[in-house]
Amino acid sequence: MNHQKLLLQQTVNHIHPLSEEDFEDFYTLFKPYTAKRKEVLTQAGSVEKYLYFVLEGLQRLYYLDEHHREATLVFSYQANFGGVLDSMMNQKPSRYYYETLSPSVFLRASYAQIEELLINKPAIEVLLRKGLTGVFSGILERLVELQCFSSEEKFQQLLRRSPHILQIVPHKYLANYIGIDPSNFSKLINSIKM
């Protein structure tokens, strides 16, 4: 089994194990795709067409308001699914951008093909539901952090969830994710015992 397929299967098994046949049917939907650094894969206002599986690289999902202020919402990196999931599942225009922060290698499947497979493969529908439930749980945790935690507590939570994040995400994006000015980020790092 090639490395890409194995990585996808390990991630799928962590969410909801599939039979060999169901996994093969799911895997055949995914095609290789590469993107350059700072490439916008999904624009606000467009409908997400793909489910991405990250093999290499770093991406972010962000919101841009009418004053051109950005809010980084989510990072994706190796062995994560990515894309604008609400737009894909609802087939409605996205309010968010999905962009690469580094050169990236993906496997990606079109939503139309996934939708077709869901009709005949209930286990894949369960996989998708469990995956989305996990995403929803993460969003609720993040809302609590945003409303109740100090910047230091938000940063500590982020490091607990993703201890390697400091090595892969540029600090200006981490500062944006936490909601502080980038100039204060180095003070925050120095104030926390790691």
Rank of each mutant, 00 (worst) to 15 (best):
L146F: 14
E115K: 05
G82D: 02
E56I: 04
P93G: 06
R129K: 14
K92T: 06
S87H: 02
G134L: 02
Q43G: 00
E66L: 12
Y63T: 06
Q43C: 12
F81N: 06
V40L: 06
R129I: 06
S104Y: 03
T34I: 12
G134K: 07
Y33S: 11
L118G: 03
Q167D: 15
Y97T: 02
V47M: 08
D65A: 01
F136W: 11
L166E: 15
R37S: 10
Q59D: 15
M89C: 02
H68Y: 14
N120P: 01
L73M: 14
R95P: 08
M88K: 00
S87I: 04
H164S: 14
L118A: 03
Y77S: 01
I119W: 03
L64D: 12
F136E: 10
M88T: 04
G131V: 00
V40C: 12
L41M: 15
S110N: 00
Q157I: 07
I139V: 15
E125L: 10
D65L: 06
T100R: 06
A71F: 13
I119S: 09
T133Q: 15
P122S: 05
P32I: 03
A112Q: 10
Y77L: 01
I119E: 10
F75Y: 04
A35S: 15
L101I: 15
R69K: 13
Q78Y: 09
E152S: 07
E39G: 00
L128K: 07
R108Q: 09
P32R: 13
V54C: 13
M89F: 10
V169L: 02
M88D: 00
E70K: 15
L146I: 08
Q78E: 14
L117P: 05
H67I: 02
C148V: 11
S94G: 07
I139D: 07
R108F: 00
L117T: 04
V47D: 05
E66G: 01
P122N: 08
Y62F: 15
Q147T: 10
R60W: 08
V84F: 05
E48Q: 11
Y62I: 05
F53S: 02
T100F: 01
L101F: 00
D65W: 14
S137T: 11
S104R: 01
P103A: 11
M89A: 09
R129G: 10
I114H: 05
V126H: 10
K130M: 03
Q43F: 14
A44D: 04
V169F: 04
Y63D: 08
R129E: 01
G45H: 09
L58D: 06
L127P: 02
L58T: 01
Y52C: 03
P163T: 09
Q167W: 08
L51N: 03
L107R: 07
G82K: 03
G134V: 00
Q167L: 13
V105G: 07
G57Q: 13
I139P: 06
V144P: 00
R142P: 01
I168D: 06
R142K: 15
H68A: 13
Q78G: 13
G45A: 07
F136S: 12
P32D: 11
V135L: 12
K36G: 05
K154E: 07
E153I: 00
P122C: 08
Q91E: 09
E99L: 09
Y62S: 08
T34R: 07
F149N: 14
